[in-house]
Amino acid sequence: MVEGAVISVRGLSKSFGKTKVLNNINFDVYKGETIAIIGPSGVGKSTMLRCLINLEKADAGSILIDGEYLVRNGHYENERTCRKICSQMGMVFQSFHLFPHLTVLDNLIYAPKYVNREDEASAKKRADEILRKVGLADRKESMPSQLSGGQQQRIAIARALMMNPEILLFDEPTSSLDPLLKNEVLSVMRQLAEEKMTMLVVTHEMGFAKEVADRVLFVSEDGIIADDSPDKIFNLPSNPIIKEFICSIKAV
């Protein structure tokens, strides 16, 4: 495994029944990097991300998170260890998945309070700071249903940040948002990138990938077919599949 990588993936493979979704995936992520993961629909980008945080089980291969094996040659650690390893990561979903029965504040403090046993006062204090950071300090008593999609997604990011993750995974965080609302979410993510949060972002926002990502992974049916700087991927695409994909996105 590569020295200094916070995530190392080797030979990751995953099938759903007979359909092989991931086949021998390899990549590394270094501390503080923002990685954009792009590619056509249905090639397994979400599955790849979900394997990293143990929402899907890999069939084969290894995943090393911050020096610890989540899975080694297809063999998983016990549930407790997996949980501990994954606690260094947070995840933001396409459809937010806020807890609808809790206020914004409770959405933020529940996990620190019940998972980490942090005392409520200190969790509330941190929640205030993080809400300010995502620009929603005035909405802590709101219910999720009273918020716009963009606001809900910013709360989802805030909820993940409350657990002080080393790494944040985003699965198409702006895909279910109106164009106008995308920007408020992207600007929070941009700010996190500037603060050197390690982030893996599956996205169709080529502007974000181009401007914010340190590296772009291009996933096709054959796996990761490019792992390069945004400049190289977007301006000098080496592969006809990538060329075609980028042209089709531009055309939209």
Partner: peptide, 18 residues
């Protein structure tokens, strides 16, 4: 209760009982 609720809880570290 949607699958997403279970997944969100899991990535935040909640145990099954919690």
């Amino acid at each position: 209760v949607s699958k997403g609720q279970y997944e969100a809880a899991k990535v935040l570290g909640f145990s099954t009982l919690q």
